[in-house]
Design a binder for these strands. Structure first.
Lengths: 322, 322
DNA sequence: CTGCAATGTGTGATCGGTTACAGATGCAAA
DNA sequence: TTTGCATCTGTAACCGATCACACATTGCAG
């Protein structure tokens, strides 16, 4: 592959001049410029980004840190962000950390030594991981990392409230709530919003079961459901949980929505494939991804950020299950 | 951040010696080594990968090219591959190209200038894109790119055959087949295998509808289904299509599996969330991802590859829908 | 005691760019 | 005529590593 020296030689100029042409920076005589451009074309020259990154001390890549890639919700997010990152002329590198702090540490080190330009974090970083965070622009999405970094979250409390209002308005009296892990802010907030609203309805009973978003089983859900045969309303912290609950309820002989109303959370595609389709709280994935990406690039370009912590409203999408 | 010179200065040695220590290469006196190691620890030094990449003319990153990120099947693949790539000490960068050849071209150029070490392609590359492919180790997964590159595919023909045998054994006579785009080898092969087997059953009728994996609609499917009220078997080229077909059949008053047997393809998580759960052809995602990644690293390390084009057998997973 | 191999270390070129600085030219204003 | 500024271009340092090569020193066989 041709390099800048080859181009300079072919065009009979110095490498500095070639550099000026390709970066459109500084003075270059019109005629010289066309000579250089001809040489570039002829040699099919493209500048070596690695060399540029070395000098710049920053490579044009953005890292996205995730718990895993198995959640459609996060996939949708990456998809949006990758498109925007590309538009800015950057590469996207992904990294899943799961619960492996060793891996988390290694990945964060890798990002550091690879001089990535920015980081979007949609995962819980361990305390030791926080110390390893590279000193580069960083925004957190759906999971607050550090108070000093910009964050984008959906209004989880509002989501819980909307679900509660809906079930209350449908005269549900015996409600089962399937929460996510309550040590996660998002799960906790959904539950708080939900319970707060229902506290105003003294004749409504709520029973909650805490589940792991990824490893919950059908048995856990169905065992819980059989304990409460009088159930007439369900709120689940994710559509996946809701879909499984729906199935268990049907197996238990319940008709949806006549006997039991079901509300999920996320509005992923599964919500439209269940039978009946699932009423759910929709997180504005597109808006959130865009905000996260744009905020990151503002940081990178040292532009002013109007609001450090942003909370995006959610929406209740009504379908057949209520 | 400290660099190799700082370490050299602190340890009172030359940069070459430091380099020898961190790369464990060449002769280094035991005592000198510990001096250097102490300096490294004290300065919290980590080598700059960008500088290394520049010299090596290759960065430790692997690119994965996809059509998009909205398919759970491919997400599962990326997930597996990312884990393996990480184990090899490499980064993973992802790139979705959709049908945008301009974007495809830009991304491939980016990979070239960023000196990525290898490429895994799970998407259809346009003819012009083929010319832009960087001259680096490359394997194609689920989509043959060039005959000269290693490829890994599942046995789509076998998948079609298994489905056909199952439906035939269940005495289905009026079968609807929903294929993927027939210009894609994978869709075509599934259909060929399916029809080949059924050709031996003169009393079986098959009607086929070609769908796009991503943009198919419920209306398309339901319109097709109402045309054939005598339907008693369905084979879909993906679980998503099968899930929607299942729903349409139920709406049309069919009982599954009593009236109609349904078989999908992929064995993604949706297949277990439908009601009834979906019988499907399982692609060994794990084995395929592992093979693809390992083959790529064999290429990178210039090891021998035993078989250029590999075809992995599939398996029929029987659930409630048959 | 010599010679050669193994061990240990440093110098400087190199990877492929960017850019500070210096030097040259031309032209307008003083 | 001199000064000053804008335009244009090249030289060389620099980004942070690797490694070929040169040059010691040491140990051991002959």
């Amino acid at each position: 592959m041709a390099n800048i020296k080859d181009v300079a030689k072919k065009a009979n100029v110095s490498v500095a001049t070639v550099s000026r042409v390709i970066n459109n920076k500084g003075y270059v005589n019109h005629h010289t410029r066309s000579l250089v451009e001809a040489a570039i074309k002829e040699l099919n020259y493209v500048p070596n980004e690695v060399a540029r990154s070395l000098f710049r001390k920053s490579s044009k890549t953005i890292g996205i840190v995730l718990y895993d890639l198995k959640n459609e919700f996060f996939n949708e997010m990456i998809s949006q962000m990758e498109a925007l990152i590309f538009k800015h002329g950057y590469q996207t590198t992904i990294c899943t950390i799961g619960d492996d702090t060793e891996r988390e540490k290694t990945y964060l080190r890798m990002f550091k030594t690879n001089k990535i330009a920015g980081l979007i974090i949609c995962a819980d970083i361990s305390p030791s991981g926080i110390n390893e965070l590279p000193d580069i622009p960083l925004v957190s999405l759906e999971r607050l990392v550090k108070d000093s970094n910009p964050s984008i979250d959906c209004d989880n409390v509002m989501g819980g409230e909307l679900a509660a209002k809906k079930l209350a308005a449908s005269h549900c009296k015996h409600i089962l709530q399937f929460t996510g892990p309550l040590n996660l802010a998002c799960s906790e907030e959904r539950s708080v919003g939900f319970l707060n609203v229902l506290a105003d309805f003294p004749d409504v009973f709520v029973h909650s079961l805490e589940l792991d978003f990824n490893t919950f089983t059908e048995a856990e859900i169905s065992d819980f459901i059989v304990k409460y045969p009088e159930v007439d309303g369900v709120f689940a912290a994710s559509d996946r949980i809701a879909a499984v609950a729906l199935k268990c309820l049907k197996k238990a002989g319940k008709r949806i929505p006549e006997d039991v109303k079901v509300i999920g959370f996320d509005n992923i595609s599964i919500a439209q494939m269940t039978d009946p389709t699932l009423t759910t709280i929709s997180q504005p994935i597109h808006a959130m991804s865009e905000l996260a990406t744009n905020t990151l690039f503002k940081l990178i370009n040292k532009e002013e950020i109007d609001q450090l912590h942003q909370i995006i409203p959610v929406e209740l999408i009504e379908r057949e299950s209520t």
